[in-house]
Design a protein around this nucleic acid. Structure first.
Length: 255
DNA sequence: ATGGTGGATTTTCCA
């Protein structure tokens, strides 16, 4: 099964890039983040016409996640559904075939030490708890999306520039590793040991032209899915040209 | 230290 994740930075704005990408790449599943629209505004029809089932969890203006799948989507869960009130649409979970899937859009955090940063660390702790309480790691579990955290300096184009900055700070990296202590592993790193492979390039500094990127979009997968993972790639082509998102899609193949 | 670009909604917030 081919599974992709893509922070599209508005599904409505990205539709002219998303539809041809789906036609060309034909993943079995696509997990979307930053759809940036309410559920009734989601452009379901052009995606359903390509043969995809669509499950969405959105809100006005910000955030928003979705699952597209050629196979039937069951057991859809929207939000963390824990004891904390959550006004933001950042996680949708479902089952497709023998796989438990989550599309997550982790809090950005703005700046180390800010209120948003504290919220980010708390949000990651809640995601960790969710993985321990609701998932069985002897099953195939795939948690993918925009984690807004690099694992280590291989994921950073200029480690000195980004040292202890947002997306790269030690507390964020430790919180990401704690999300995985139920047994999840970084599927991309199974296939690619080398650094210099990025999934996000800042619009503001025209970072893509300089390949000044970070790897912050990840596939965290349970041991059976990790073992079955044979391919992992970043579709840098999709980041090129007019009307691209600031993130590239990441695709894995799980036997 | 600042601002650069892009999207949604609205002259500002978020990334």
């Amino acid at each position: 099964m081919r599974i992709a994740t893509w922070n599209v930075n508005s599904v409505r704005a990205r539709l002219p890039r998303l539809v041809p990408w789906l036609q060309e790449r034909r993943p079995d599943v696509l997990l979307l983040q930053e759809t940036k629209c309410q559920d009734e505004q989601f452009p379901r029809e052009p995606i359903e016409e390509l043969g995809y089932n669509v499950e969405v969890f959105g809100q006005k203006t910000y955030n928003g996640v979705a699952i597209l799948s050629k196979s039937r989507i069951t057991d859809v869960q929207r939000g963390m559904r824990d004891e904390v009130e959550d006004k933001e649409a950042r996680v949708i979970a479902a089952t497709v075939d023998d796989m438990m899937l989550l599309s997550v859009y982790v809090v950005n955090g703005q700046e180390v030490g800010s209120d948003a940063y504290k919220y980010k660390l708390e949000w990651l702790a809640r995601l960790r708890k969710l993985m321990w309480e609701r998932y069985i790691m002897t099953e195939k579990v795939v948690v993918a999306g925009d984690f807004n955290v690099t694992f280590d300096d291989r994921d950073v184009h200029d480690p000195a520039e980004w040292h202890e900055q947002i997306l790269c700070s030690t507390p964020e990296r430790e919180a990401l590793l704690r999300v995985m202590d139920s047994g999840l592993k970084d599927a991309f790193r199974k296939i690619h040991e080398e650094g210099g492979l990025y999934t996000w390039w800042d619009f503001r500094t025209r970072a893509f032209q300089r390949n000044a990127g970070l790897r912050i979009d990840h596939f965290l997968v349970s041991p059976p899915a990790y073992k079955a993972c044979t391919v992992a790639e970043i579709d840098v082509e999709a980041r090129k040209g007019q009307g691209a998102s600031d993130h590239a899609p990441v695709v894995i193949e799980v036997a």
